[in-house]
Design a binder for these strands. Structure first.
Lengths: 337, 337
DNA sequence: CTGAAAGCGCTTACAG
DNA sequence: CTGAAAGCGCTTACAG
């Protein structure tokens, strides 16, 4: 079913059908109410919807939100990270009546996925939400230059033109430090992941600022996951009473390791996790931690993208949004007062 | 970047660029190797990709697999059902180098989602995978008539033209009945959900066939979820030694209810679940059950769709596929011999 | 007030 | 061997 066919049925020109569809009521292009009604009737009967490809070619948008993930989203490990984000993305898209185009193609290539290699496939979507821990700054910059509407999920402060919705890790880590200090801790160790991601930097910045503010003794070590034993030794060397562990899985392992040595958490050592993994074992210790608002991040990103696409973005609109994390007090931060 | 621009850069006509891109080497349209090479070079330098909208208008496909879910896919309850399916869909799409267009729009409307109301939005995808417990048979029929390529996930035997990939519940339920009978059970109760879905019918058919085959006494009751107490009474009235519970969540509840009355499972009553819920509590009883190959269903559906779209479908290809379920013996089916 | 026409970027049969 | 042309289904400025 095409506009031409509709036009034949209604006895008007194809352009008239397009005009009715557009809903325009300018003085320049006014149709008689009778004509309009006739067309509307046929449109209704035939359940017509414009071909999105043709609309797109003619320069109109189709209410399609692209979703690009820098890493493969569905393997079990990755899904912990992506699932809550995608849930938010999906529900916001639903609110907006938009469809979701997931760029799953060319995932299997070696090396990091390239956004711009997708080339004009991107153009099928009106704009795109970018998900992933490691985004290429150069690509983001090119996207800005192409004036392609997009929103990154996660803080990206490198380039001031990059719109993002991120979690405010720095503040949350700061609050956790405040809490530790309030409970009498004065020697703190921070176990960072060996990543260069913004979220890693952001958490660390919060830690550094807060420990400096309180004037407490602190030490930062970089440890890959799976080195709980080494980490435990690091802490002992420094004489810390609390460890801030960036990787929540590692935090669990550390607790298990310490208790396997006959020591107790938090009696002998306090553990604070700077995140939460999705598959938390119900039986596991209720680690003191921060929880990022992941579903909200995904949803907010789509809403911001919608605002950007609708051209609402003047100085009045904030294109760089930080959402607060919540703090779970848990049971692994001792009160030493 | 358009073909016209590429053509200018390479000093050929736009059509020549398109020909090079098409990779055709017919006798009808042969380009000199030099020309071809020149075009290829420019194509490479510029990282050109054809506008998918234009390709689509010109009648070519874009390697986009549509995904239509009849119910909203992401609320917590629904995600138990959809998440494993989508995981399979995604990974198969990745293999094929296809993108995924999720029809999330118009989800919020009242009443069941209408596939055909989406109209030509569907056309943006080359074909579509349909997910959901309750599909409208009339819509499926219209889709067949439109010759729009699609594959339903879940058995749809109503219309012989509907391609599907489903789980073979009937066989699996039959195996569970065999097992129960082998262990000395002769009075069986079946608790069906009050649904008209194919999967409900399929399981029940397997039960009826198997109990008939063995000549054992059986009884079927229809119970909504959350009626564990009533269900327990039904079973007592009939004097059954084992209940086959369609809803796995309800099976858990039934076990809990029985044990809360001071009776034991499976000593006093055996319980068999005809499915598995995603959020199984690790601590919960290891119920004897069948497990549908959900991720495989999603992946197989995409692969079948790909075969259908590529026109490989003659009589030699099976467009109706049943994948076997697996059986978990668990610990809730007593041996009464 | 309505219709004929150009153009979006492609593909492909068809002239040269 | 290559280029000019039609057509896919739309939108929109522009003639009538």
């Amino acid at each position: 079913m095409t506009q031409r066919r509709i036009a034949e049925l209604a006895g008007v020109s194809q352009a008239a059908v397009s005009l009715v569809l557009s809903g325009r009521t300018d003085t320049t292009t006014r149709l008689s109410d009778a004509t309009r009604q006739r067309v509307l009737d046929v449109l209704h009967e035939t359940n017509y919807e414009a071909d999105p490809a043709a609309r797109s070619l003619a320069g109109k948008s189709n209410n399609i939100v692209g979703v690009f993930t820098y890493e493969s989203a569905f393997p079990a490990e990755a899904s912990d990270f992506y699932a809550p984000l995608l849930t938010g993305v999906e529900s916001a898209a639903e609110e907006l009546g938009a469809d979701l185009l997931m760029f799953t193609s060319s995932r299997t290539h070696d090396g990091p996925r390239r956004l711009l290699r997708e080339g004009s496939r991107l153009r099928l979507a009106d704009g795109c939400v970018l998900l992933g821990r490691h985004m290429d700054a150069g690509e983001l910059a090119r996207l800005v230059e192409l004036e392609y509407p997009f929103v990154a999920v996660g803080r990206r402060d490198g380039d001031a033109r990059v719109p993002y919705v991120g979690a405010d890790y720095a503040s949350a880590v700061g609050e956790l430090v405040d809490l530790a200090v309030a409970r009498g801790h004065t020697k703190l160790t921070y176990a960072a992941l060996p990543f260069d991601a913004e979220s890693t930097r952001d958490r660390l910045a919060g830690f550094v600022a807060a420990t400096r503010k309180h004037g407490v003794s602190s030490r930062v070590v970089t440890r890959s996951s799976g080195e709980a034993e080494k980490l435990a030794r690091d802490v002992d060397v420094h004489g810390s009473t609390v460890v801030f562990v960036e990787d929540p899985v590692e935090a669990d392992r550390l607790v298990a390791h310490i208790e396997s040595e006959g020591r107790a958490v938090p009696r002998d050592l306090s553990v604070v996790a700077l995140g939460e993994h999705a598959r938390r074992d119900e039986a596991a210790r209720d680690v003191t931690r921060l929880v990022a608002p992941r579903t909200a991040l995904g949803a907010e990103a789509v809403r911001l993208l919608a605002r950007i696409m609708s051209g609402e973005v003047d100085e009045s609109i904030e294109t760089r949004v930080l959402l607060p994390c919540s703090i779970v007090e848990g049971s692994t931060l001792a009160d030493r007062r």
